[in-house]
Structure formats: structure tokens, C-alpha cells
Write a protein that binds this DNA or RNA. Structure first.
Length: 802
RNA sequence: GCCGGUGUGGUGGAAUAGGCAGACACAAGGGACUUAAAAUCCCUCGAACCACAAAUUCGUACCGGUUCAAGUCCGGUCACCGGCACCA
């Protein structure tokens, strides 16, 4: 019997929607389960087969949880602001809003053809004013709590997008999005103080269930380090503070280095004897991008500042001060004490400039190379620290510094504040008015949403100003505070804004008096299970945790963390094992797969292709096995034994499969869950299937291949209603066990025979049986038995000696 | 350089409180059905030895260790992937 996937899948998709079986209830006494996927950016390319992998995975979980009686919220929406849409709009002279609308329509049609159990009644769209009203509202709260501020600073500027980028968006010195060169540009930017939350963003990772690799990457990115600030006194009388993680090596500091941007250079202009040389070096450094500076890391450059020296507070030694671009202005204090004996960078610099190298931790040959692997060493040449371990020396010197007013313990982070403005049209306008008298004045909340003006030209400008700046009728307003002439902020928010809180909107998507009602937030928070890509670990995931913590602090949301559990899917690669991309020509469009094999086959294959957390290459051959499974399942309906019971000989197989499939789904081992269903169906095809067996099997298949499950349910008349309305079967642990089992018998670890024994047979009994076996006794021969081991249900090992 | 991960048949991948390596599937080969093909069904399928079978030996990147027993644990090496990187 041929399986007509085209008509059957359409039929059930319509029925599900008609009955609203996937709609979540907001006022339910049932236990809730909130499953979340990263909502897609509706690009012009449409879906490729990588998109459905996470959607299907959580759909499998969501469908199973519904069958288990949970009130499941599994929503979707569109992260639709952003540059690709805007660039496409500019090129083709279509308004980005129209482009967005078209792309969404296409994405929606594609996704709906997959039969994912999304609650479409809660669809959100970040570009919808009723949505971004609340994105702007959150920004205003951040502003009011001094977490949003404007700052003149050197920023990453993409020469092609003509737009500022966050540090996170610069990859290897080029724009993450378009691959163009990124240069430094000094601009006034809106910033968000994510650094204020750095410590909590690290600490609270202990309270959530994320994969270790995700936690590690976030910690790495936040880059917490503990050390000390040490005050050196310059010969000018100024205090020059450095940050170090190795205060124990203070006696080994033979010179200092300040970054080219350090403010003391200005201050000391008249004192520095070689100021021209210093200035020239500053200018050279300023020309280089951050990337160039780090690329040339190997070769240290710098200039000694003549006329000023610094005094080491522990031994009053005068040491020289250099400027060098290997010291970054943006980290610590922008100045370091250099300990060449125990730091590779300082060592290289000291060698180049012929500076003294003093060993302060015993163990290496510091004239040959820096001895950095010295955490367990002993202090030397260090006055009061001599003889102490590195660990103890750290404690003692910090104490000394504090007591003598020469420094203090200090924690530093690599994380920097979030550059939040973009000089583009297609983003949320920042709801701030710049008044010459009152400064930055927040728009009154009653004026939200502040919508984008409809314009003809939204091309970026070369001057670095937002295209909104040219629209004078929009820009020029009266100051809400003093009523005088003022101007709107013309920068827009980055794409990360709308996606930093979208999961909250799903809880109550049509609310127009709050981002979501208190009741909805209380009931649905936190997200129970969030699946997404590793590429968002340091961007979206960190940003949204930051916003959520802020919303928690001001009493808007009930939990400190937004996501209780996070999982990550591997990519679907092209047939050639490379990442799918248009330029590589290895993109597989799900539409074609759905047309040829059906959505169920695609879903099943995406889950069967391999370990969900690892990437796997697409195989046009591999998918055929999944289609075969669907057909074998469908054809079971013509092989039914008229019985409403599980046959005794099938009992353990069914109980085991129920257990395995259920556990594997929760543990994201979809591939082995499907393998166990395949094993069972192979048996059923041979032995036939009773009505009850088919009923159970169909429910187990449903989370993976819901259309064919419904069709089988209906065709075989297995029960009232749809499969989607049934109860997930329970298993009985006692019935998962077989009465007789096969064990292996080894002699000295080599398998000699297989034995069928009763599962509950005792040690002695099994060993006696094993020894009675002809092959085993031959192997033992007349050697001496020294040990007999029976591992219950697994094997026997008889250890013999000649 | 630092952090994280991975390494198993022709292929995708199973198997870790240490216990029969290769489940499940794909591809390939052989057979049945068919005028033929497709589909379907049955058989074989890590390697060596061998006419064949039985038996034996080898085999989870590499070297070594612990153990009755190691893909799994420990020490070391190599390769690849991802992230970070002059962060003091």
C-alpha cells in the first residue's frame, strides 16, 4: 500500500489547527512545560534543512510532554529586525517592512509544512510596534536605573555595513555578518552596563542546567580574574596604579608599561623629555585596529618615557616607565608592572629593550625563558616573602599592600559594556530626546511605541550618522522636560534587543498594558527547556540573561534566571561534510525533501542522523531508511491480530521500548529512541501486531512522526480522538526483564561460549553451568581455576593458571 | 598559548556506576518476485588466516599503566573541530 504523504500530512495539519490541540492554556491547573527554540531570523533565503533540527527535537519533547498531561507552551516568532533585510531592501528598493513581511510569509509556510506543534496563536514579531513598544520600555527602565549611558568612545566600525558593531560581532578583525574590514572610529554611543552584572552572570551559572561547554564558554568570555591593584608612586608625585594577578612577584618588577592611551601621558606632556617620540608612537598605535595590534603580538614595540620614573612600593626601587601597545587601555588600569622573569610578554619586551630580569620564584632559568608555570614554587629575592609558597606570598603581599595603603585586592573582568547603538534604519528607535538644556531625556512611557518614520531613503550615510538623522520632521521635537527645541536620538537598537526578552512575550503575547501580565509571568517562568546553537552562547544567551536579571531586580519577572535548562544542537552539514552555504552550493532545501518523502520522513531522519549535540553530514541515501520505516509502520495496519492485549511473548519488548523511548527523548538521545522503535517494528512486521500493541506503538511514534501516527490511529480505529489527545503509555519495570537471558562465558577474558540461563539464576548455579559447557571445559583443560566471576545478567569469567 | 570537545567498519552512528565492540540504519554484493525495471522480501557484510567451514589471531588515533576484564579508568603523545587570545 503506497503511503500518500502529501494528502495525509495536509489533512492532519488542518485538523490539529482546527481543533487547536497545540494551544497552551494560560489559566490552567495542569503542570506547565515551556519549551523554547531560538526564533528564526526570516532571511531571504528561506529555510535549509538545518533549521528543522532543533524545532523537531523540542517538538518531540513537547508532544511527549503533552501526552503526559503537561500544559505545554511551545511557541514561535520572528526576530525580524536586522541588517540583511535592510541591505536587501536598499538594493531592491523595497521597504524593509515589506521585505520582512514577505520573508515571514515564506518561512511560515515552510515551517508549517513540517507539522511542528507550535502554538501559532502566540506568534510574535520583533518589528511589530505592539512588540517593540516593550523593547523600548525595557530600554527606558535601563536608562532610568543608570544602566544605559552615552559615551564618546572608540568603536568597531564596519566599513561595508557603515555601522557600529559590538565587540562580540567582530570576528578575526572582520564584520561577523558581511566579512568586511572593521576599523576603529571614535563615536558617541549608547552603552548598556552589562559589566555591572558580570559577577552574577558567572555565579548564577551554578543555578542552571546548561551543558558544561556553554558554561565554560560564558565564564571564559566574562573572564573573571582575581588579583590586586598596586600603587606605584611616580617621580612626578602622581600615583600610578597597576592591576596584576601576580602581586607575589612584585619584587621582580623591573619596569612599568602604560598603554598608549593612558591619560598620564597628557598630564606629563611638559615633563616627558622625549615627548615627540612618545607622541609619534601614540599615533602609530592609534592607526592600528585592535586586530592589527594583536596580530603583531609576536613583535613587541614601545618607547621609554624619559624624565619620569616609578617607585616600587615594596623596595623603593626606581624603575623606568614605557609606553607600549601590548598593554590595553580597556583592561585593568591600562598600566602594568612588568615582571619579565615570570611573564612571557614582559620577558620578550625585556629582552628586546635589554632590561633586567630578576627571578622571584625558584625553579626555571629565567635568563633563557620566562618561568610562568610556577604556581607551586617558592619565593626568592623577595624580602619579606622569601621562602613562602606562591600561594602564601599572594596572601601576605595583599595584606601588606592594604595595611600600608599601597594597594588592595581586586577582581577584574574581560567583559566590557555592551555597545547598544546602531546607525541604521531597520531597528527599534531609541526612545530618548537630546535637549540642549536638559541632556538626555527619556520619552514618556505613554508615547511608546516610538515608531519608525516611513521614508523613501533609508540608506546608511558615510558620515556615520543614522539615516533617521535626515528626517527633520521626525528628529525635531520639543523637550518633554523644558519644552524647548530638542532632537530625537537617531540611532537604533541592535538586533539583539528584541531577542533579549521575546520568551516573556510568548507568555502573554497580546497584552497591551504590560510586556506580560504578572499572572502569566508567575505561571510560565522560567523557560523549562531552551535549545539553541552554540554560536549564540556569548551573544544572545548572555545578553538575555543580563536583561532578565535586570527585570528581576526591578520586580518585573519572578526568576533570576530566564532559562532553567539549555541544550545545544549540532549543525546539519552539507553532503561533503562542510557547513551548508549558498556559496558552497551544498544547501538542501527542506521543501524538496517534504515534497519527495514527506515531513515525517524529514523529521525522523533529522532526529536519527546522529547524536543531536554533534554536527552530522546530510545524506540523501540515509533518509531513505526513514521513509521505509514510515511505510512499514503504515502497512502494519494490514497485519493486525484482533486482540486488545499485548501478547505475552511481546510484553518485555514493549515495556522496554516504552522505557527506552521515553528516557531517550528526555536525554536528547533521539537517534537511539528511533533505533529502538525500528528494532521493535522489525519484530512486528514478522510476527504481526495486536490492536493494543499497535495502539502503544503508534503513541510512541507520534512525537517523531505525528502525521503517519494519526493516520494509522484512524485507519486501524485504535481509539477515541486523535493520537495527540491520548495518554503516554506507562511501563512496568518488572516487565522490562526477560525470563531467560543469554550470557557470555569467558576463560581468561576470551569468549568461549554463550549460555542461556534463567535471569534470576544464582552465582554458583551459573558458574557450574558454565564449567559444564564442553567448549569451556576444553579451554580450561587441566589448568588450575584461580578465580570465578559472574556479573549478573552479563557474563562469566573463569580465570585459570597453568 | 589558554578553555572546551572529538577520534569506533566502506558510510552515518550504537555501546561508558569497566563486563559479549559494531545496536539501528545507509551503501555494497548475492538471491527471490517481475517480460523488465522500480518497490518489496530473504541472505552476506571489521580485518587476517582459509578452497570452505570450524578454530585461532588482530582490531575502538598512538604509547604505556591499573584490572579477572578497558572503546570506557589513569599517565603521556598525535590529529582534527569549536571558542578565547598581548586581559598583565
Amino acid at each position: 500500500m503506497k503511503y500518500d504523504h502529501i494528502n495525509i500530512e495536509k489533512k492532519w495539519q488542518d485538523k490539529w489547527e482546527e481543533k487547536g490541540v497545540f494551544h497552551a492554556e494560560n489559566n490552567s491547573v495542569k503542570e506547565k512545560f515551556f519549551a523554547l527554540i531560538e526564533f528564526p531570523y526570516p532571511s531571504g533565503q528561506g529555510l535549509h534543512v538545518g533549521h528543522p533540527r532543533p524545532y523537531t527535537a523540542l517538538d518531540t519533547v513537547a508532544r511527549k510532554r503533552r501526552l503526559q498531561g503537561y500544559n505545554v507552551l511551545y511557541p514561535i516568532g520572528w526576530d525580524a529586525f536586522g541588517l540583511p533585510t535592510e541591505n536587501y531592501a536598499i538594493k531592491n528598493h523595497i521597504h524593509p517592512a515589506i521585505v520582512t513581511q514577505n520573508n515571514i510569509a515564506r518561512f511560515k509556510k515552510q515551517i508549517q509544512s513540517l507539522g511542528i506543534s507550535f502554538d501559532w496563536s502566540r506568534e510574535v514579531n520583533t518589528t511589530d510596534p505592539s512588540y517593540f513598544k516593550w523593547t523600548q520600555w525595557i530600554f527606558l527602565q535601563l536608562f532610568k536605573h543608570n544602566l544605559a549611558y552615552k559615551k564618546e568612545m572608540s568603536v568597531n566600525w564596519c566599513t561595508s555595513c557603515k555601522c557600529v558593531l559590538a565587540n562580540e560581532e567582530v570576528v578575526n578583525g572582520v564584520c561577523e555578518r558581511c566579512g568586511s574590514e572593521v576599523i576603529r572610529k571614535v563615536k558617541s554611543q549608547w552603552m548598556l552596563k552589562i559589566t555591572e552584572y558580570a559577577q552574577r552572570l558567572v555565579d548564577d551559572l551554578d543555578t542552571v542546567d546548561y551543558p558544561e561547554r556553554v558554561k565554560a564558554q560564558q565564564k571564559n568570555w566574562i573572564g573573571r580574574s582575581t588579583g590586586a591593584e598596586v600603587d606605584f608612586t611616580a617621580t612626578t608625585g602622581d600615583t600610578l596604579t597597576v592591576y596584576t594577578t601576580r602581586p607575589d612577584t612584585l619584587f621582580g618588577a623591573t619596569y612599568m608599561v602604560v598603554s598608549p592611551e593612558h591619560p598620564y601621558i597628557e598630564k606629563w606632556t611638559d615633563i616627558i623629555e622625549n615627548i615627540d617620540e612618545v607622541r609619534a608612537y601614540q599615533q602609530e598605535a592609534a592607526k592600528k585596529s585592535d586586530f592589527e595590534r594583536t596580530e603583531m603580538a609576536k613583535d613587541k614595540t614601545g618607547v621609554m618615557i624619559k624624565g619620569v620614573r616609578a617607585v616600587n612600593p615594596v623596595n623603593n626601587t626606581e624603575i623606568p616607565i614605557f609606553i607600549s601597545d601590548y598593554v590595553l587601555v580597556s583592561y585593568g588600569t591600562g598600566a602594568i608592572m612588568a615582571v619579565p622573569a615570570h611573564d612571557t610578554r614582559d620577558w620578550e619586551f625585556a629582552k628586546k629593550f635589554d632590561l633586567p630580569i630578576i627571578e622571584v620564584v625558584k625553579g626555571g632559568n629565567v635568563q633563557e625563558e620566562a618561568f610562568t608555570d610556577c604556581a607551586t614554587g617558592v619565593m626568592v629575592n623577595s624580602g619579606m616573602l622569601d621562602g613562602l609558597s606562591v600561594e602564601d606570598a599572594k596572601v601576605k603581599i595583599k595584606q601588606w599592600l592594604t595595611e600600608n595603603g599601597k594597594g588592595k585586592e581586586k577582581v577584574n573582568f574581560k567583559l566590557r559594556d555592551w555597545v547598544f547603538s546602531r546607525q541604521r534604519y531597520w531597528g527599534e528607535p531609541i526612545p530618548i530626546i537630546n535637549c540642549p538644556c536638559c541632556g538626555y531625556v527619556p520619552l514618556d512611557e505613554s508615547e511608546l511605541p516610538l515608531e519608525l518614520p516611513m521614508v523613501d531613503s533609508y540608506e546608511p550615510t558615510d558620515t556615520g550618522e543614522s539615516p533617521l538623522a535626515n528626517i527633520t520632521e521626525w528628529v525635531n521635537v520639543k523637550c518633554p522636560k523644558c519644552g524647548k527645541d530638542a532632537q530625537r536620538e537617531t540611532d537604533t537598537m541592535p538586533q539583539w534587543a528584541g531577542s533579549s526578552w521575546y520568551f516573556l512575550r510568548y507568555m502573554d503575547p497580546h497584552n497591551d498594558t504590560a510586556l506580560a501580565s504578572k499572572e502569566a509571568l508567575e505561571y510560565w517562568s522560567p523557560v523549562d527547556w531552551y535549545n539553541g546553537g552554540m554560536e549564540h552562547t556569548t551573544l544572545h544567551l548572555l545578553y538575555s540573561r543580563f536583561w532578565h536579571k535586570f527585570l528581576y531586580d526591578i520586580g518585573v519577572v519572578p526568576t533570576a534566571e530566564p532559562y532553567a535548562k539549555r541544550t545545544s544542537h549540532g549543525m546539519i552539514l552539507g553532503e561533503n561534510g562542510e557547513k551548508m552555504s549558498k556559496s558552497r552550493g551544498n544547501v538542501v532545501n527542506p521543501d524538496e525533501v517534504v515534497a519527495e518523502y514527506g515531513a515525517d520522513t524529514l523529521r525522523l531522519y533529522e532526529m536519527f542522523i546522529g547524536d543531536f549535540e554533534k554536527s552530522a553530514p546530510w545524506s540523501p541515501d540515509g533518509i531513505r531508511g526513514c521513509r521505509r520505516f514510515i511505510e512499514r509502520f503504515y502497512n502494519l495496519t494490514s497485519n493486525i491480530i484482533d486482540s486488545d492485549e499485548i501478547r505475552p511473548e511481546m510484553e518485555s519488548a514493549f515495556h522496554k521500548t516504552i522505557k527506552k523511548v521515553g528516557e531517550d527523548i528526555e536525554n536528547i538521545k533521539f537517534n537511539t529512541a528511533i533505533a529502538s522503535l525500528m528494532s521493535l517494528i522489525n519484530d512486528l512486521v514478522n510476527k504481526g501486531v495486536t490492536r493494543e500493541e499497535l495502539r502503544i506503538f503508534t503513541i510512541l511514534v507520534d512525537p517523531f512522526a505525528p502525521h503517519v501516527a494519526e493516520e494509522v490511529w484512524e485507519t486501524a480505529n485504535l481509539g477515541e480522538g486523535m493520537v495527540a489527545e491520548q495518554k503516554w503509555p506507562e511501563y512496568d519495570e518488572a516487565k522490562c526483564k526477560d525470563e531467560t537471558i543469554e550470557i557470555a562465558v569467558q576463560v581468561n577474558g576470551k569468549i568461549k561460549a554463550k549460555l542461556n540461563i534463567a535471569a534470576d539464576a544464582e552465582n554458583d548455579e551459573v558458574i557450574a553451568l558454565a564449567k559444564a559447557d564442553e567448549k569451556v571445559s576444553n579451554a580450561i583443560g587441566n589448568m588450575k581455576v584461580v578465580k570465578e566471576i559472574y556479573v549478573k545478567g552479563k557474563l562469566v569469567n573463569i580465570v585459570v593458571k597453568p
